[in-house]
């Protein structure tokens, strides 16, 4: 039971982290005007969070649907895709998540340590523009979830919000040809391991 409780807490922590990370990516990569962002403090570091209600709601709804998959250890990757005007991906921020077997989790497992590790990931995102090329104007974004098992089975689990349906993404539409791979950060804790890297299109146009 303690293990299941931990998975639920880990899903909460990860979704809160992903929310901060998505806002920060949208700010750093200039997907939206900087005027809608406000400086806030998360994990004891300054971050930029959107104040636009519609955008915030969209991100929250997305993550609320991702949470049950993380809770059941069924989300392999959460990917923030930035697309050009023609809806072709220019950058993919890939959060590769893996959780250890439930048996290895005990009441001694420290959750506070996880938050310290997540801070380091946030810091890396906030400076990632230094290693990425500028994006073309008019970019938009989407969030993808790579599930470990059959999508049709998991589809039911992600439809947790009425009026926020999910569909199976076409691989051709979300993949890039020969992307440049930029590792940003790897974090390893007792209860979750996460690797963040960016796949960047060679010629962004």
């Amino acid at each position: 039971d303690i293990a299941l409780l931990f998975l639920s807490v880990v899903a909460d922590i990860l979704c809160e982290f992903l929310e901060v990370a998505i806002h920060l990516i949208l700010y750093v990569r200039e997907v939206y005007p900087s005027g809608i962002f406000q400086k806030r403090k998360k994990y004891n570091v300054p971050v930029q969070m959107s104040c636009h209600p519609e955008l915030n709601q969209y991100i929250q709804d997305t993550l609320q649907c991702v949470k049950p998959l993380i809770e059941k250890n069924e989300a392999e990757k959460v990917v923030v895709v930035i697309m050009d005007k023609e809806h072709h991906p220019v950058e993919r921020f890939v959060f590769e998540i893996s959780q250890p077997p439930l048996l290895s989790i005990s009441s001694e497992t420290l959750l506070s340590h996880v938050e310290q590790l997540l801070r380091a990931v946030i810091l890396k995102i906030s400076v990632c523009d230094a290693v990425l090329d500028n994006n073309p104007p008019g970019c938009t974004f989407t969030v993808l979830v790579y599930t470990r098992e059959s999508a049709t089975r998991n589809m039911e689990k992600v439809q947790v919000i009425k009026d926020f349906p999910w569909i199976v993404a076409d691989e051709q539409e979300v993949l890039m040809q020969e992307p440049r791979l930029i590792p940003l950060k790897t974090m390893t804790s007792d209860i979750v391991k996460m690797q963040l890297y960016v796949e960047e299109r060679a010629h962004k146009g």
Partner: peptide, 27 residues
Amino acid sequence: KSAGAHILKPLMSPPNREEILTTLLEL
């Protein structure tokens, strides 16, 4: 990519930049 993995995405798109700029101007 592991075998059997599938990719899911929200059907709806987020608000686009133009919509957000319009809201900003209205404010």
